[in-house]
């Protein structure tokens, strides 16, 4: 008979060892993440609702124009009318924090992978694994390590949303016209200057598309985050599922959609405002 491979037991041993021996390290991560989350949540929820809504609409106006601003205000009014505003802000805080963390890890990693074929060859299968492994699978050890609350939700979201950030950054930089990079070298620019003044600006539209993807993926994780006890729209969706409460599910779900459309339109508008994208748009107009 074919031997039983105890892979699951091995993984469990590793996770047990990690929780036993790296407790202070994980506790530090937990404290930092929780602090950041609470801080951001406080910023989003402490001003009066209409101030916050106007601020977000102003952001939409700055990114794209008055039509998006008006549309956003209508959407926020709907959320408020469904009594989901506080949940929406909790979710926004979770999404923004996760996205910022994914970008802070993913962009440098993408740059590194773009500069070295070896790094790229190592990073690629790891990203494949992170993207294809069912979320619940790594949610289990995350909960074992961080218990319940916002933190395991944030960690799982970062892991899930990291891949497109790394991929888009690497792709964007590798796609930069080879001759332009060569021109930078030929005139004696340092690698740092070439990265800053040539590669990153020319890759910016692609990287911005990656940022948009990161935020969208982070938002798609809110229900999962709700499942492990993070506050927000996700926890209401989970509650609605458990109690078969159609009305609550519809309201929380619609609020997620409004938030998603708002974040998508704002970030994709920002993508088309990069200097390179504007330079190219100016000529085709």
């Amino acid at each position: 008979m074919f031997p039983r491979i105890p892979l699951g037991d091995w993984v469990e041993t590793v996770v047990d060892w990690l929780t036993a021996n790296l407790r202070p390290f994980f506790q530090l991560i937990k404290d930092v993440l929780l602090g950041a989350y609470d801080g951001l949540d406080w910023v989003l929820t402490s001003p009066p609702v209409w101030v916050m809504a106007l601020l977000l609409a102003a952001l939409a106006y700055a990114a794209k124009g008055w039509r998006l601003a008006v549309g956003s205000l209508l959407g926020f009014a709907l959320i408020l009318g469904m009594d989901q505003w506080e949940n929406a802000m909790d979710t926004l805080a979770l999404v923004l924090l996760s996205a910022v963390l994914a970008l802070a890890l993913g962009i440098p990693l993408g740059i590194w992978a773009a500069r070295s074929d070896r790094v790229s060859a190592v990073v690629r299968p790891v990203l494949d694994l992170m993207q294809t492994l069912p979320v619940f699978v790594y949610l289990i050890p995350t909960v074992v390590i961080f218990l319940t609350g916002a933190v395991p939700g944030i960690v799982a979201t970062v892991i899930f949303a990291l891949a497109p950030c790394v991929r888009f950054t690497e792709l964007g930089i590798r796609q930069v016209d080879h001759e332009v990079v060569e021109a930078g070298r030929a005139f004696g620019a340092t690698p740092g200057r070439i990265l800053r003044q040539i590669q990153l600006p020319l890759a910016a539209p692609t990287i911005m598309a990656g940022i948009n993807q990161v935020i969208m993926l982070a938002l798609s994780m809110v229900v999962i985050a709700g499942m492990v006890g993070a506050d927000g729209l996700g926890s209401d969706v989970v509650a609605a599922l458990q109690r078969v409460n159609v009305s609550l599910g519809a309201e929380a779900g619609l609020s997620v959609v409004v938030l998603a459309v708002f974040l998508d339109r704002v970030t994709s508008a920002l993508a088309s405002r990069s200097p390179v994208a504007r330079a190219l748009a100016r000529t085709s107009a």
């Binding site: 021109a183 003044q197 020319l202 200097p275």
Partner: peptide, 16 residues
């Protein structure tokens, strides 16, 4: 920087 410069086939200008 100081000794030798270059002109490229496809111009290699910075578009922005």
């Amino acid at each position: 920087r100081t000794g030798v410069s270059m002109v490229f086939q496809h111009f290699a200008l910075l578009p922005h």
